[in-house]
Design a protein around this nucleic acid. Structure first.
Lengths: 332, 332
DNA sequence: GAAAATCCGGAACACGTTTTCCTGGACGAA
DNA sequence: TTCGTCCAGGAAAACGTGTTCCGGATTTTC
């Protein structure tokens, strides 16, 4: 149990114990000013002895910075924003920055509430992230902002986004390198930008080998299973299916197995997301495109630190994806 | 783009614009002291006009509180701690408290680092949560702490935990109410406390109807599928299988279907977690035990607020689970 | 009409740190 | 000796609030 709270030692207590003034103690602990080495050491020992931790509220006030950044996410369930968050937190904690979490639950009112709160806290910067890859309206605050995953509609804002285009193309090229030419694509709702981009990019990379039209549906295993029936009826000679998500790909694999088609011997399958609970549990495990969201979070945080330091990097930074190859294309 | 950062208006700017002193402005905005209504209104208008947001660093310093709580989690992937976190954040944001996120990634060194950082920030309180239900060593800080999901080993600490016992029993009672008596149990590693408790509780509730021994394995679909083979060989007359997780239950359903057994007509199945990506995608969708982790997060946060307010609630608070019934026991 | 009560608002301080400026002493050079 | 230089450390201000105390002005009471 935490001992009864008395009072935490302040720098004045340290100074008193070391027999110096508060300002001298500050200099000693921060390696600044002109002090004898012996004095520095004495102050340090006093600080250690008292378990002194400088009060960052005072420091924040004096330095004009709060050493805090806010993370605004609209994605409560967090499939995408959680890894981004963790990456950002990782990068920030290295620099003694803290990250305060604000989940708006897609409610504009809550978003306003959080923005006011963050401004009130004089946060050094804000990271904005969302569930979709569609550009979102920028937020209006007199504080450095970087957008992650969902870019700002203002091209002058700083955004870090996933290379959906390259990701989809990499899956196709991988299949082609395995000798598969006749490629189909099953993905989510056509209203989703990421579905559109992945589909367009797949068609572009597959060129003449692309069979039929992209099959738009929903981001679910059920749709993946159903799409297989639709596809095989129309295009029985298909050699590979790239999917817009791992969920869809898993449904595709399940249905193919039920129909007695071997994956990948008869038909190779790829997913998108590298969502381990889907990609690894699928039978067979999925070759899939990893968006490297944690790295995206790290990059976003570092970019934000640059902006805070006064080196604004305007525009969109597009991060590469990584293709993870597994049995659904390689076999055992 | 955020307009160039000039300087945020302080309370002195508001005061100057309203033609009063800073202290008067403070009183006007905080509804304290003795002021004419007219003066109050004038100050408020000035504040609005300037878009004044009080600097919470100053406020924190003056009030002795930071209006911030830290959340320490060891669970980077976040299956369990994410909903807890969101619930806590929800409860805290209502009280104008911010939540700073600290993911230790199970590294004691990082944990120490974060603790120092939180103490430095003079956080008002700390929530500690983990991946397992095993009790964990308490943290040593002169700040109010509440443990969520993973209780503290010190029974005098405040912990909020899930009623694994009641959850498992509720699934069994549900099956019994449907006329199923011969019940088996498939769960995770015996080394996991939650697996042990759920198994013991299942056996206790099933009484004479319990068939064989609990099947311990791993938290995976693969194990669920395999366990079905083991179970049916030894106990062909089983009427229902309760599982220690939704992943296992999904594997069980898949294997039963492959073997031509109908769920639930031949054998009913229940899961644990209500992890929607498993429970809803399973064929059929799973009757399962929801641990209500978001509510747990909310309760934890509110408890912490109580402790901060000086009303310590010692000991373990065990929150009830909720049984979600779906087709895997009810049929269509 | 004078004393007392009431109301309004300002000055000063506290919170904990960093930073700027300044002073007193030691020392070397002329 | 005297002046200048350099060094070690202290005093005070600054950051932005909230709060306590106090004085002046207005109203009430006798």
């Amino acid at each position: 149990m935490a001992s009864r709270i008395i009072r935490m030692p302040g720098i004045k207590d340290v100074a008193a114990l070391a027999g110096v003034s508060a300002s001298t103690a500050s200099k000693a602990l921060n390696d600044t000013g002109q002090l004898r080495a012996e004095t520095r050491e004495r102050v340090r020992r006093a600080a250690d002895q008292l378990g002194f931790r400088p009060d960052s509220r005072g420091r924040a006030l004096a330095s004009g910075r709060s050493f805090t950044v806010g993370l605004i996410t609209t994605d409560s369930s967090g499939r995408f924003s959680i890894p981004i968050m963790l990456g950002a937190e990782d990068a920030l904690s290295a620099g003694e920055m803290a990250l305060v979490l604000c989940d708006t639950r897609d409610d504009p009112l809550r978003e306003q509430h959080y923005l006011k709160s963050l401004v009130s806290r004089r946060v050094d910067g804000i990271i904005v992230t969302g569930r979709r890859t569609e550009a979102r309206e920028p937020i209006d605050v007199p504080i450095p902002v970087v957008y992650a995953f969902s870019p700002s509609t203002d091209p002058d804002d700083t955004s870090v986004i996933v290379d959906d285009h390259g990701g989809a193309a990499s899956a196709v090229r991988h299949l082609q390198s395995l000798g598969r030419e006749r490629i189909a694509h099953v993905t989510g709702p056509e209203s989703h930008l990421s579905a559109q981009i992945r589909a367009a990019s797949t068609m572009g990379a597959a060129r003449a080998g692309f069979v039929g039209q992209p099959l738009y549906g929903e981001w679910s295993e059920r749709w993946g299973r159903h799409a297989v029936d639709v596809l095989l009826r129309a295009e029985p000679t298909v050699e590979a299916i790239t999917c817009g998500s791992d969920q869809i790909a898993r449904g595709v694999c399940d249905r193919l197995r039920e129909l007695g088609r071997s994956v990948p011997d008869d038909i190779a399958v790829t997913g998108f997301d590298n969502w381990s609970v889907m990609a690894l549990a699928s039978r067979p495990p999925l070759t899939t495109v990893d968006m490297e969201l944690e790295e995206l979070g790290r990059r976003t945080a570092n970019l934000l630190l640059d902006v805070i330091a006064g080196e604004p990097r305007r525009g969109q930074l597009i991060l590469p994806t990584r293709l993870i190859t597994r049995e659904s294309t390689l076999g055992t």
